[in-house]
Amino acid sequence: MSKKKNSYSMMMVIVSVLIVFAIIKVIAPYVFMILLAKDHTMPTPSTLLLWYMILAILACLVYVSTSDLKWANFLSFILPAGDDKLKLLFQKMIVISIPLLVGWFVYSGTVPGTASPVELRIQHPTLLQEFEKLENPFAHADEATKRKCIEEGKHLYQQNCRPCHGSKADGNGPFANAFRLRPINFTDPGTIATVVENFAFWRIKEGGPGLPAVSTPWDSAMPAWKDVLTDTQIWKIIMGEYVTAGVQARQREEMEH
């Protein structure tokens, strides 16, 4: 009976869980830095990490309990090691590390510390009805007028928006660092390219203070530009802004019959 080879499936489970943890915690930030072409690492949010770890553990446990054989093998690691020195060593490691881990978690969980504030931004709050109906007055203008508006808009963009959103419309203006909720990167296809021009008009005119409460208006540094810019100027800025960013506004879907 002792001839039977010892099963290390419990060690495999522990090792694979640790590997998953390392991938999410250490490797993923760099992978996403490269994939998303950012110049800083992208740490995995802790709640995401939590869910991935739970999933990984569940998957491992499901795997080891798919058959009675696997389950028995899994548990057999706890059985006396006999003369398998390596197994004995691993068993000792597990037996010592589990209480220590539990102790550390309890300590770090109860020690009075500051939980980091959780702050989320809802990217696209619903466009208000009154802005839904507006239309860019230059939408149907001839090409020459449009070109002129775009150029004027680009000048206005550079004068008013550039300090935060940057000359390239990439959200890297000289003031961008000072706002913890960084100015939006318009060249990112997930930002102004996904909204209609009216939405941009609403955001420029009403700014952060005009946001609904779910969108944390208190953190948004977006000014309400209605105090100095006319509606016409705002429409021109929008036209210039899309050209500067090199993206196009989402087109309104056909009206229902």
């Binding site: 110049d39 800083h40 740490p43 995995t44 949010p45 802790s46 709640t47 990490l49 939590l50 770890m53 739970i54 553990i57 569940l58 881990l101 539990v102 978690f105 309890v106 770090s108 969980g109 510390g113 939980a115 980091s116 504030p117 959780v118 890297n172 961008a176 660092n177 913890r180 960084r182």
Partner: peptide, 21 residues
Amino acid sequence: IAGVFAIMCLGEGVAQTSQLF
């Protein structure tokens, strides 16, 4: 095990600001 990870992950929230000088 799930509980242990829950505690661990909640304990270390990520609060960072990125200055992109």
